[in-house]
Simulated scan of single mutants.
Amino acid sequence: MKKILLIVLINLLSFTTAQSQCWYTSFLKDYEAGNVDFRKFIGESKDGMGVYRRLYDGGSTYVLKNATYLQKFEKLSPDVASRIAKFTDDKIGSTLAKFLDDCDDPEFLNFINKSENSKFVDAFSNHKLTDAEAQNIGDLVAELKLNEQNTEKIEKWLVRSDKISIMKGRFKVADDFEKFSNRSIASNTDIPCKAWGGNGNRTHYTQLQAGEPKVILDDALVDPIPIATDEFGARTYKTLYHDSKLTKNAPWTPNQSSEIIDKFTSGNGVLTDTKGLQYVELEVKSSANYFKDYGGVLKTGDKIRIYKNEIYKSISNGDGKSIIETIKIFK
């Protein structure tokens, strides 16, 4: 107890008496009455006092004193935690407790903790979104769904918003736009194919899966002549990568970013010359059944080489029925 009191006193130096008195009085009372697990959490956690403070400020009463849930809450980034702490939390099975139970899913936890996904956390905790905010969130979720990311828990917490119908409406718009783009490329239409000088003799694959973690390519235009063959017979093919986005602000999915886009901006990967990274290689993961619908040479286990100067995205006019612009990502 002496150690905890010392920690409290040190923390209080950062606050005025008026700011601190309520929460630390509550903390001392809860610590005195708390069970062994609660005391252990406070004593061993790197940020036990901060965790308690964020929950107290948010109005928590159940999770605030429960060591199991305190450990779950501690895994949230401070910024996310401060907003999620505002969920109702007055008894077992509270909204906050249910949300933290869903955070046992590492994929969901990792997703909400990323700063670029802060809009989702805002939407979880804010029922009163504007139409524009709801549409933007819908576009973001649609992008994840199109790339086969599990959005079950994301949608579960978005459904609390009174604008959920607008969000769900965007899912179909995104799906329609991707199919429209696929057809445009298959027919070698001016927009978008003019952006890269036409398809030539390349084979057009849609929803090709490659890499680990898996990336799903909206459109992969693969040159039929391999540029390398390994000792096991697997071949490497030069590939142009195209993606469809509903809006200019629609983000790349986490795997698209980490496995392709970010590598050309961070310097990670294989260097081909002194100017920096020129391409990334990904192993093809699509199954043999997938390739039955295509007449090209690509097969499971082959590699595709995506060059920095051959990555494009097409932007919708908003209704998903036409392309207003095709952008070359790296000039």
Score class of each variant (00 low, 15 high):
residue 223 D to Y: 12
residue 177 F to L: 09
residue 329 I to S: 03
residue 19 Q to K: 11
residue 199 N to L: 13
residue 121 V to F: 01
residue 41 F to M: 06
residue 127 H to E: 11
residue 84 I to Y: 07
residue 250 A to S: 08
residue 242 H to T: 10
residue 116 E to W: 11
residue 278 Q to G: 12
residue 266 S to W: 02
residue 206 T to H: 14
residue 89 D to R: 01
residue 124 F to K: 02
residue 227 I to L: 15
residue 13 L to V: 15
residue 72 K to R: 12
residue 273 D to F: 00
residue 89 D to Y: 02
residue 308 K to S: 01
residue 114 K to S: 13
residue 27 F to D: 02
residue 263 K to C: 00
residue 266 S to T: 14
residue 121 V to C: 03
residue 313 K to C: 11
residue 227 I to R: 14
residue 323 I to G: 03
residue 241 Y to R: 02
residue 155 E to K: 13
residue 58 G to T: 08
residue 111 F to S: 03
residue 310 E to K: 05
residue 143 E to G: 07
residue 176 D to V: 12
residue 223 D to I: 12
residue 87 F to E: 02
residue 139 D to H: 06
residue 8 V to D: 07
residue 262 D to K: 02
residue 264 F to D: 04
residue 109 L to N: 06
residue 104 D to R: 14
residue 190 D to G: 08
residue 295 G to R: 13
residue 18 A to E: 15
residue 28 L to M: 15
residue 225 I to P: 04
residue 290 Y to M: 10
residue 265 T to G: 09
residue 90 D to M: 00
residue 16 T to Q: 14
residue 158 L to E: 05
residue 103 C to E: 13
residue 254 P to A: 09
residue 99 F to N: 03
residue 49 M to V: 15
residue 321 K to I: 14
residue 1 M to F: 11
residue 52 Y to W: 08
residue 180 F to T: 09
residue 190 D to T: 14
residue 202 R to S: 08
residue 174 A to M: 05
residue 267 G to F: 00
residue 107 E to R: 09
residue 258 S to W: 00
residue 51 V to R: 01
residue 49 M to G: 07
residue 23 W to T: 02
residue 35 N to C: 13
residue 249 N to C: 03
residue 117 N to I: 03
residue 146 L to N: 05
residue 323 I to L: 06
residue 71 Q to V: 11
residue 111 F to R: 10
residue 138 G to M: 00
residue 71 Q to W: 06
residue 12 L to W: 07
residue 140 L to S: 04
residue 91 K to S: 00
residue 158 L to V: 12
residue 244 S to T: 13
residue 280 V to A: 03
residue 216 I to L: 09
residue 37 D to E: 15
residue 75 K to G: 00
residue 192 P to N: 10
residue 226 P to K: 08
residue 174 A to V: 12
